[in-house]
Design a protein around this nucleic acid. Structure first.
Length: 454
RNA sequence: CGGGGCGUGGCGCAGCCUGGUAGCGUGCACCCUUGGGGUGGGUGAGGUCGCUGGUUCAAAUCCAGUCGUUCCGACCA
């Protein structure tokens, strides 16, 4: 993609309603634009990242034999009345009527509709087990949206559901999903921790959260410094007899810090501030009984399906990655979720040889299948560098007279902070910068990219 | 739902207290300049001062209401 054909914009100042660094940077870098409270438009760069995140999720869900579906976002009240939640669900569910006065809602979650739909589609044990997933927009009319994409009202979520004959089989399905989650977060380059969540239900139901440590985390996790056992605030609070409901995050954090680990009994607990990116549950039959989702066994008797549910906040991944992977100059998104992996910038547009070389290298990269954007704008080099750092391309390739003299171009890795302030010093000695020969550029670039992947 | 802040050109802000020709930075367009870290200079376009009503000779400014947005709390997960 040529920058001059693309549509994007960078801002020097973030809009004042950007309340976190990550969100401010995404806005400045042209990833997003707020439409109204808690609702955002994805601009081209932001959408590219979102699509990459979705692609990684699809890869590992498919690998785990989960099958993709797409359920409607607008749902009839009928479904919710049958599931018994039309009256129960609070104001978070946005309700409205069509022209005939029939009630609808924007789906805050899809399990009610899915169970309702499957009731007529699932009949026999021979269909089980299976696992369905979708990547869909959900709407929850949060009282107080905040932190940009982290707690928006409209948000993209991956939700998956497993359907098994019995508990044993269901636990296998759960484990497959758990492992898929571990792999997919690793692939995204995120340091995600697995923690035990409220297991609540009787009958050995399982639940785990996948969280990242972050200063803007809305929850806390308690982790043993010795054996590593980690649980969320509710689980820990219950274990230590602390009334979680009555305490805020800070107070709860204080009261749990330094407690003895309940698992190994020797270690002491540390308290983290965390943000939830994924949550998996082994639900059992509680839901299917309510939804009357049953299958006929070999003996001809109807039995409730054992379910599991597995969610991931897609937009939230982008938001938290922007928050964690960034510096003063801009974003530093991990390579597999960055909008473009490489940016080629011509240091000048006045020098024919420079421009021709940059054009050629760009073409070669495109042909080699490298995910590249070519900053061919007629602006000063400093503007390109500043924008490249703000957007955070993992690699910036600078084509200029300097390198041309020796038949090379510079490749700068974004992961290390390139200078923005000491403008008169030459940072070529920075080990984040390497010179590549023009003659064999695409192949060499490809090697660097491959090495950079988690 | 309770309490507070803010709404002035695309973005960031000043002006409001003490009513009297709407301003700054940045961005944008054009000219010159510069050309490997947001170059320097010049010219220019762009604003129903969120909206409605009130007070007044006169309202961005004072008053009331309303909408939007945001923060704190409660709620939710």
């Amino acid at each position: 993609m040529r920058y001059t054909k693309y549509f994007t914009i960078t801002l020097r100042d973030a809009p004042k309603d950007a309340d976190t660094r990550g969100h401010a940077l995404m806005t400045r870098a042209g990833f997003l634009k707020q439409s109204t409270s808690g609702i955002y438009s994805y601009l081209p760069l932001g959408l590219r990242s979102i699509r990459k995140i979705e692609g990684i999720i699809r890869k590992y869900m498919d690998e785990a034999c989960s099958v993709e579906v797409l359920l409607p976002m607008v749902q009839s009240s009928d479904v919710w009345i049958r599931s018994g939640r039309w009256e129960v669900y609070g104001k978070e569910m946005l309700r409205f009527q069509d022209r005939s006065g029939r009630d609808y809602c924007l789906a805050p979650t899809h399990e009610d509709l899915l169970a309702d739909m499957l009731r007529t589609l699932v009949n026999s044990y021979s269909q089980l087990p299976f696992n369905l997933y979708q990547i869909q927009t959900k709407f929850r009319d949060e009282v107080r949206p905040r932190f940009g994409l982290i707690r928006g009202r409209e948000f993209i979520m991956k939700d998956a559901y497993s359907f098994d004959m019995d508990e044993e089989s269901s636990l296998v399905s759960y484990e497959v999903m758990r492992q898929a989650y571990v792999k997919l977060f690793r692939h995204m380059g995120l340091d995600v921790r697995e923690i035990e969540a409220d297991s609540g239900e009787i009958g050995g139901s399982l639940s785990q959260e996948f969280v990242v440590l972050s200063d803007i985390g809305e929850d806390i996790a308690v982790s043993c410094t010795s054996c590593g056992y980690t649980s969320n605030a509710e689980v820990a609070a219950e274990a230590f007899g602390v009334e979680a409901d009555s305490l805020d995050v800070e107070a709860l954090s204080e009261s749990l810090k330094g407690t003895k680990c309940t698992r190994c009994t020797t270690g002491t607990n540390d308290v983290w501030r965390v943000l939830e990116l994924g949550h998996i549950f082994n639900i059992g039959t509680k839901y299917s009984v309510g939804a009357n989702l049953t299958y006929k066994g070999k003996d001809g008797k109807d039995r409730p399906v054992h379910m599991g549910s597995y969610g991931i906040g897609v937009g939230r991944i982008l938001a938290v990655a922007s928050q964690i992977h960034s510096d003063e100059a801009g974003l530093q998104l991990p390579i597999n979720i960055a909008p473009f992996e490489v940016c080629i910038a011509s240091a000048t547009t006045r020098d024919v040889e420079v421009v021709n070389t940059a054009d050629t290298l760009y073409q070669q990269c495109v042909e080699a299948g490298i995910d590249v954007i070519y900053d061919d704008r007629d602006v000063r080099a400093g503007v390109k560098f500043a924008d490249a750092e703000l957007i955070g391309y993992p690699f910036l390739v600078v084509v200029g007279k300097r390198g041309l003299a020796s038949g090379t171009v510079e490749v700068k890795a974004r992961t290390a902070t390139n200078n923005t302030t000491d403008t008169d010093t030459d940072n070529d000695t920075d080990n984040a910068t390497v010179s590549l020969p023009i003659s064999d550029f695409p192949a060499e670039m490809q090697k660097i990219l491959d090495r950079a992947r988690p």
